[in-house]
């Protein structure tokens, strides 16, 4: 067997097996799906609330946006959370001690994240398509749009998650990062049309992937008339591709550097020191 490709193959199997462990763990599945289910229940209540005499309800408008947000959130926070946790518990060090182990490890993280993000997406898609009037995949074009938005979204957010994850020294800091990210999501037109916000807030929102992923999924799943509440009355596919592509390129340039730096610093004593710290903060 080939020395170059073995780690990739091992990583693929690793990701699949970790995904199996994930879906067969009731606790983890609940943790992963609970936020989506809460959002779903809220949206069902908003099924009959209309926005400014638009053609669909507020609930129907938000469902596709939530799916878009889930792609970004899944790509970013899953990778970030996994790296932060597994650096502390020594999983990464084990990978480092094995030939090609780091490559295999990262491929495994990517596979696991992609699969669990797609799973969350499907869990949201089924009720979105069946329970909400006006939400549907707009033919073949809409399906293709959703597929490329999903793919580009993951490619744009996972490397960033890896880059951020390799900067964070403790899983307890992940919660801290949730604050600015939640803030960003709040202004990204997920829960309310972004055009209702002041211009400078719209400007900030358009820098980050959340807004663009929400826009992409809305374009795939909402009636064309809904484009009226978007910036410039356009789905802006090219801009979406450009911004997400920019994040992807930046992430892929940054992530290998930061990951290498992080990997270089891993050692038994570094893991032992982190374990010591984690034990102390658990006791406190």
């Amino acid at each position: 067997m080939n020395r170059t490709w073995t780690p990739y193959r091992a990583g693929l199997l690793r990701g699949l097996l970790e995904f199996r462990y994930f879906v067969t763990s009731a606790a983890e599945m609940t943790g992963a799906l609970f936020p989506s289910l809460i959002a779903l229940v809220v949206m069902i209540f908003l099924r009959d609330t209309d926005v400014d005499s638009s053609v669909v309800s507020l609930g129907a408008m938000t469902m596709p946006s939530l799916i878009g947000m889930n792609i970004a959130f899944g790509g970013l926070m899953n990778v970030l959370g996994i790296l932060a946790t597994e650096r502390e518990d020594g999983t990464l060090l084990r990978a480092k001690a094995i030939p090609g182990g780091m490559t295999g490890y990262l491929v495994g993280v990517v596979v696991l994240t992609a699969l669990s993000t797609v799973m969350t997406l499907l869990v949201m898609m089924v009720p979105a398509l069946t329970l909400f009037d006006g939400v549907g995949l707009n033919g073949l074009g809409g399906t293709l749009t959703l597929l490329w938005v999903l793919t580009v979204g993951l490619v744009a957010t996972m490397p960033m998650g890896a880059a951020l994850g390799s900067l964070i020294s403790s899983p307890r800091l992940v919660g801290l990062l949730m604050l600015p990210i939640t803030g960003l999501i709040a202004v990204s037109g997920i829960f309310y049309p972004v055009t209702a916000l002041p211009g400078w807030v719209q400007g900030i929102a358009q820098v980050f992937p959340f807004y663009w992923l929400g826009l992409g999924t809305r374009s795939a799943m909402l009636p064309d008339a809904m484009v009226a509440v978007e910036i410039g009355q356009s789905w802006r596919h090219l801009e979406t591709l450009a911004v997400l592509g920019g994040w992807a390129v930046a992430g892929m340039l940054l992530a290998p550097l930061l990951l290498r730096r992080m990997a270089r610093r891993e050692s038994g004593s570094a893991v032992a020191a982190r374990r010591e710290r984690a034990m102390q903060s658990a006791v406190r």
């Binding site: 970790e18 518990d89 020594g90 999983t91």
Partner: peptide, 11 residues
């Protein structure tokens, strides 16, 4: 390299 495991790969 024999590493001291803590709770990695618990699943």
């Amino acid at each position: 390299v024999v590493l001291q495991s803590w709770r990695d790969h618990g699943k």
